[in-house]
């Protein structure tokens, strides 16, 4: 069961990371397009709006993947000095408090996304973008992050070892 959840989480994180990479390419493309258009007295008019969405989406969609790949820095002051058998309880505490914090925030962000959707709130720009879309993508990233933290916690409890992902 946990193995299956871990596989699911890894798969979803990879998918989200793929989208995040596409967003980096999109940012590049849109900015270059705007520069070229401006040379000819035109504009897309939505550059800062859409690049803003893309940065937020890239950051939150990329987070769970980078967390899983150990790409996020930490200060292992205590962890490195503790005897080995204490590692997994501390790691568990870290994963659970992080989950609690981001889980709590995603709860309220979910309510906000639902409101944006139900009331049809749009951006104040020419594009009149329905705000639930960019807001929802960030929510998705937060959920994936929470899911990754849950899977990590479950693995820590069952394996009682610091190393949760064999791939590391």
């Amino acid at each position: 069961m946990i193995g299956w959840l871990a596989t699911l989480s890894r798969g979803l994180n990879r998918l989200a990371a793929g989208v995040a990479i596409l967003l980096i390419l999109y940012m590049f493309g849109h900015i270059i397009l705007e520069i070229v258009l401006r040379l000819f007295g035109h504009s897309t008019f939505i550059l800062d709006e859409y690049i803003g969405y893309a940065v937020a989406a890239m950051t939150f969609l990329g987070l769970p993947y980078v967390l899983e790949k150990n790409g996020l820095i930490r200060v292992a002051l205590v962890l490195d000095r503790l005897p080995g058998k204490w590692h997994w309880p501390l790691e568990l505490l870290i994963a659970v408090t992080s989950f609690a914090a981001f889980g709590w925030l995603s709860l309220f962000w979910w309510q906000n996304v639902v409101r944006s959707y139900q009331r049809g709130i749009t951006s104040d720009t020419l594009a009149e973008t329905p705000l639930w879309v960019p807001e929802g993508i960030v929510l998705l990233g937060l959920w994936l992050l929470c899911f990754t933290l849950v899977v990590r916690s479950l693995q820590l409890v069952t394996k009682r070892s610091r190393h949760t992902h064999p791939a590391q």
Partner: peptide, 17 residues
């Protein structure tokens, strides 16, 4: 929170909250 070994991004959120 940082010294425990929490990822820095999460530690900032936990400390703020």
């Amino acid at each position: 929170v940082l010294a425990m070994g929490t990822w820095v991004f999460a530690a900032l959120v936990i400390a703020a909250m």
